[in-house]
Design a protein around this nucleic acid. Structure first.
Lengths: 110, 110
DNA sequence: GCGATGTGCCACTCTAAGGTTGCAGGTCCG
DNA sequence: CGGACCTGCAACCTTAGAGTGGCACATCGC
């Protein structure tokens, strides 16, 4: 029985990406190649502090990382946890497919 | 610019899978090949009604489907939305990698 | 028919997540 | 130095969601 990935870490990533605002944040961070919380708040319908909270959640999931540069904090994207979560989803899907085909076999050939 | 998948549907799947109890439910449903809410509640630390609510959320995301058979409702797993969500994650990861390598190029070769 | 079993729905509680405002503390620049 | 700018922290509000209990209704087996 292979234990592929840490389930809790995947849970953190899924929970982080479950929020629409956070998905917009990671999207903006992705194609801008990094930004500050203040800048992000400018193109979002929420306040700077709300963005900061979201960035902390994302950082907790390992999806972004803040780097202090002078008086500002630049947040960058960190793709590794995404790969882990994607692999987990694919693995689950494969397990389901196996289970479903097994059921089908059993139903058609008792 | 390809718009690969419906963002809202992916959000539903991620939100559904963000809850640990729901992950346990889909796991149990996966390797059991279907079960009823009452049966599931037997192997979970929550009540039957809580399981029913979770199953409704999962059904709303298209991850499971309930089939009535007599007086009981058997819930089965539906892997398609999982694939969609997995593809979305992979696509996002790829976009980030592109963005990161572009930044790196720019930094090393101005 | 009748009891046992399973489901559906309603009202209710409680906690945590998302959001806001206000203020204090660093940091850059004229 | 002193103002302008950005961040960090704390208190607070509001609502969605996770969970429970209770009761009515349908269905199977005897």
């Amino acid at each position: 029985m292979t234990e592929p990935v840490a389930e809790a870490a995947v849970g953190d990533v899924l929970a982080a990406l479950a929020d629409p605002t956070r998905r917009r944040i990671v999207g903006a961070l992705g194609n801008a190649g990094g930004a500050t919380a203040t800048t992000l708040a400018g193109s979002l319908p929420v306040s700077r502090q709300a963005v900061v909270k979201h960035l902390q959640v994302l950082e907790g999931a390992g999806l972004v990382e803040g780097v202090r540069r002078g008086r500002e904090v630049r947040y960058e994207v960190r793709p590794d946890p995404l790969d882990v979560a994607a692999r987990w989803l694919v693995g689950l899907s494969a397990a389901w497919d196996r289970s479903l085909s097994a059921l089908k076999r059993e139903a058609e050939d008792p």
